[in-house]
Amino acid sequence: MNWDWDYVGSMMPDLLDGLWTALLATIFGFLLALVLGLVFAILRRSKTAWIRVPIGFIVEFIRGTPLLVQLFFLFFVLPDFGVQLSPLASGIVGLGVHYATYTSEVYRAGIDGVPAGQWEAATALNLPARRTWTSVVLPQAVPRSLPALSNYLIALFKDVPQLVAITVAEPFTVARGIFADSFRPFEAITMAGVLYLVTAFVLSYLGRIVERRYGTVRV
């Protein structure tokens, strides 16, 4: 088996298109995970059991089932209930909701790390609950959470190949299309893997920059 550079060159445009799709899934999936995870974390601390308990159950349920099953459900089952999402949209929702259950734990740890005295001072000043969250608790909890969150960004990105199962055109889906024609999987699979590797490397570098810039906690 010898490596054919010309062949690699000819497949790169398609693979890079695939990488772009993978990045879209990562970016929007992660944004959804960041926002929804925060919502989960806050609702799980609600004083109302009617909110706290069901949300806790949903989060545990989602975390306890495989991503692949959730993707199948979103893409193949939801249409039976009249909800038809594109493959990429299904992938974004699947990754976002799945990873929201992880980010919510990260936020929860960050929130628990805010001393009780901060909540008490907010009460002593009669700050409304919403204001206590937005100006006291989250500004202290979120910076603490950044290192763990950026790890989940990488983990989410590395789960994007699972979107093959729902026909999203990420690099491995593209690679499969290529070697189906040429019967030469070696270059296609290798290059798809290299694209993931290099991108994961760049993402973790960016993550560290964000941590350094915003991750400082004043005590």
């Binding site: 001393p115 005295g117 901060q118 008490e120 001072a121 002593a124 100006s135 006291v136 500004p139």
Partner: peptide, 10 residues
Amino acid sequence: FQQFNLFPNM
């Protein structure tokens, strides 16, 4: 409070 409890982020 005894421990001041200022908001460290402000």
